[in-house]
């Protein structure tokens, strides 16, 4: 399976609160909340780190089998990307998120 790359959209404002990431889309003023595991994926979505590597980080931090973590991460990406706040590509994504994962 070819690897995928994910990147945060630049059209958002995000802030960590209580272990969960709160994200506001400036496009349609939709407010998103990610749980702790989803937040780890979000913070690692720099456009340069392949999803498989992000999943490896999940496996090292959480009690989960690699196969389960990969399947869940792919599902999460597939669910969130249509909302436009997470970009997905088969190739590294450049300059999609020049600022940090947590922005004002």
């Amino acid at each position: 399976m070819s690897d995928r790359y994910i990147a945060r959209s630049s059209a958002i404002a995000a802030r960590m609160l209580g272990g969960e990431m709160m994200i506001m889309s400036s496009v349609d003023s939709t407010f998103y909340t990610l749980n702790e595991v989803a937040t780890v994926i979000w913070q690692a979505a720099d456009g340069r780190t392949p999803l498989s590597e992000i999943v490896s980080a999940l496996v090292s931090q959480f009690e989960v089998e690699p196969e389960v973590a990969l399947r869940d991460a792919q599902q999460f990406v597939d669910d969130l990307s249509p909302h436009g706040i997470l970009l997905v590509s088969d190739h590294p994504i450049a300059d999609s998120s020049p600022r940090s994962a947590e922005t004002a």
Binding site: S29, T30, F31, T33, N35, E36, V37, A38, S60
Partner: peptide
């Protein structure tokens, strides 16, 4: 020690409608 795993999920709501 590793932390308990929960499936990565998100929820969302339209702010305009919430600001009901």
């Amino acid at each position: 020690a590793k932390k308990p795993y929960r499936k990565p999920e998100f929820r969302f709501e339209k702010v305009f409608e919430t600001l009901l």
